[in-house]
Design a binder for these strands. Structure first.
Length: 572
RNA sequence: UCCGGGAUCGUUCAAUGGUAGGACCCCAGCUUUUGGAGCUGGUCAUGGGGGUUCGAAUCCUCCUCCCGGAACCA
């Protein structure tokens, strides 16, 4: 519902502090107050179907849909498809899937700029008739010359003063396909000396003999972005047309067309796009990463694409919360990627079932435990959520623990397992390391331990055992592949490079570590792609689509916060 | 160089002429059968110079720095 829209008599009430408004909301409130668009708020998300959506798009999607929801309005999905050479249906489908997955719903308002081609053509004709557009025969290069520079004004095209009749005839013949690509354009007649380049007689139609993903071969002239976007907004009766900062220079043109065409005139509002540390964020660079094999496709779990984040195991809720959290402003900023990671941790901490998994196993033999005994240990599924219940984990004489939970020569403050030391096996007994078995090469192959039988579900009264480690039954555990993903880039700002280098030189060579034979507790047998778990003391993991009935494959979404790493770092 | 934007803790978002605040990070402590989570406390900022005002992050002015703009891309 509409909350906090009216703020006039707010300060008097000693109520809860009002959540401050972002600059877009302030503009909308002004519109509501002045009644410029009545009391309607209608936004839209206008992707070009020429690539996959990324986390930056998620910010825009969340902004547009959330604003509409907040003000009781609507948000359309509109594909901005005016370039037949770049756009494909495959992308349309992928974009729709991503937006749905994020949790937003455009209902039946799925529009395409290409649906408006006929109307756009008529509007172009109107401009010609009003003496505001002309067919120009300058080549691309000549057009560039005539445009001038920031300090030097452009000069008028020799074709600028053709008669309305001639323009009408030429434009119609352009549509009929009488001219080759690039030979002619339709330009708006504005001002070749305008300080804003976009107002120096911009091209509004070009000849493109290309097969369009929706209109097929019906057209061979296509409108430019500037002659499409605002009019599409207008047709859909959009009120606030929200776009990124680089379109700020286009706004005068947006306004010019709405005025000259005398049509509904939305307000364009520009905001700063999202940047993330340790990340690049452009379709072109993604293409490089995919094509040159740095990642395994657009949905590689290291990619900041929506499909990549989805495969990694990110939850839509965490992405939406992240977008809400980072806010919206007009100045460029770079958001620390740990903010994103913290949001998925926060969500998964609340909902992810806990399981035990040993990534780098070391065998432990419990000497004072019978060989054939299998004990059913109760383990809590989620300490943050009592309703998640509990499960049974089998305990046997031989178990695996993680290699880094044992130190032959423990450092200071290390309170896990070491020779002669005790540690708690999560949910089970307190265990003591009696001896270390090594092979000829001097490598540890096995730990011989004993348990205190009187410590199942209770603490010893005569001593305090601080450490707790996870474990799995060597006999009952199942094999799993675990893919440990790390940041794709090893520096905060991958685009900051030395002369002659590019972002590729900052790729993190260790962004993926595959563990082929991790040992996971048997309850994980039969998991389905997309399920998420917390491997206790390790991190959050999701089940990858590569999973088979025999062998689950897990992706690390994010590690748990590791304050031991910090202690160890400082100790050095 | 011309035009259009922008500048507040390390980061991000507030404060709309009246005590510069929150969150994340960081630090310290408490708690804990996850060195997780949680709880308490703490460090840290208005790009610079002038001006208006009792009072300026906020208004004026000059400067500095950053981003975007000269596709028949979006």
């Amino acid at each position: 519902m509409v909350d906090k829209v009216v703020t006039e008599n707010g300060p008097d009430e000693a109520s809860a502090p009002e959540k401050s408004l972002n600059f877009v909301e302030e503009i909308i409130n002004d519109h509501l107050k002045s009644g410029r668009f009545g009391q309607v708020v209608h936004t839209r998300f206008p992707p070009e179907p020429n690539g996959y959506l990324h986390i930056g798009h998620a910010k825009s999607i969340a902004l547009n849909f959330s604003l509409a929801e907040k003000y009781g309005g609507l948000c359309n999905l509109r594909f901005d498809d005016t370039n037949p050479f770049k756009e494909e249906d495959e992308y349309v489908q992928a974009i729709k899937e991503d937006i749905k997955w994020l949790g937003f719903d455009w209902e039946d308002r799925e529009y395409y700029a290409s649906d408006y081609f006929e109307q756009l053509y008529e509007w172009a004709v109107k401009l010609i008739k009003d003496g505001l557009a002309y067919v120009c025969e300058l080549t691309l290069e000549e057009g560039r010359e005539y445009r001038g520079t920031p300090t030097v004004p452009g000069k008028n095209s020799p074709y600028r003063d053709r008669s309305v009749e001639e323009n009408l005839d030429l434009f119609e013949r352009m549509r009929k396909g009488e001219f080759p690509d690039g030979s002619r354009t339709l330009k708006a007649k504005i001002d070749m000396a305008h300080p804003n380049f976009h107002m120096r007689d911009p091209v509004i139609y070009r000849i493109l003999h290309g097969h369009h993903h929706r209109t097929g071969d019906k057209w061979c002239i296509y409108p430019m972005y500037d002659f499409t976007h605002g009019q599409s907004d207008s047709i859909e009766e959009i009120t606030q047309s929200i776009c990124t900062l680089e379109f700020e220079n286009h706004r005068p043109l947006y306004d010019w067309f709405c005025e000259k065409l005398e049509i509904h005139h939305p307000q364009q509002i520009e905001f700063a796009r999202l940047n993330l540390t340790y990340t690049v964020m452009s379709k072109r660079k993604f293409l490089t990463l995919v094509n040159e094999g740095f990642v395994n496709g657009w949905d590689d779990p290291r990619m900041p694409t929506i499909s990549g984040l989805r495969r990694r195991g990110y939850t839509p809720e965490s992405i939406r919360n992240f977008c809400e959290y980072i806010g919206v402003a007009k100045h460029n900023s770079v958001v620390d990627v740990t903010i994103l990671e913290n949001h998925v941790r926060e969500h998964l901490n609340a909902v992810a079932p806990r399981v035990m998994s040993v990534l780098n196993p070391i065998k432990v033999v419990i000497e004072n435990y019978p060989e054939d005994k299998v004990e059913e240990i109760q383990a809590i599924n989620n300490p943050e959520d009592e309703s998640a219940g509990s499960r049974i984990v089998p305990f046997t004489r031989e178990i695996y623990i993680d290699q880094n939970d044992f130190m032959e020569v423990p450092v200071k403050k290390y309170f896990r397992l070491a020779p002669g030391k005790e540690v708690r096996l999560r949910y089970a007994y307190i265990i003591k390391c009696e001896s270390v078995v090594k092979n000829d090469a001097g490598e540890i192959v096995e730990l011989r331990c004993t348990i205190d039988h009187d410590t199942l579900g209770k603490q010893p009264t005569d001593r305090k055992v601080r450490g707790v480690i996870h474990w799995v039954s060597a006999d009952k555990a199942i094999d799993a592949e675990v893919r440990l993903y790390d940041r794709l880039f090893s520096v905060e700002h991958p685009d900051k490079v030395e002369e002659g280098q590019d972002f590729r030189s900052n790729i993190n060579p260790d962004s993926l570590e595959v563990i082929e034979h991790a040992k996971v507790e048997p309850s994980l047998l039969g998991v389905k792609s997309g399920q998420r778990f917390q491997f206790e003391r390790v991190g959050y993991f999701s089940v990858d689509p590569d999973t088979t009935a025999e062998k689950p494959v897990f992706n690390r979404i994010a590690s748990l916060r590791d304050s031991w790493a910090k202690i160890a770092r400082k100790g050095r």
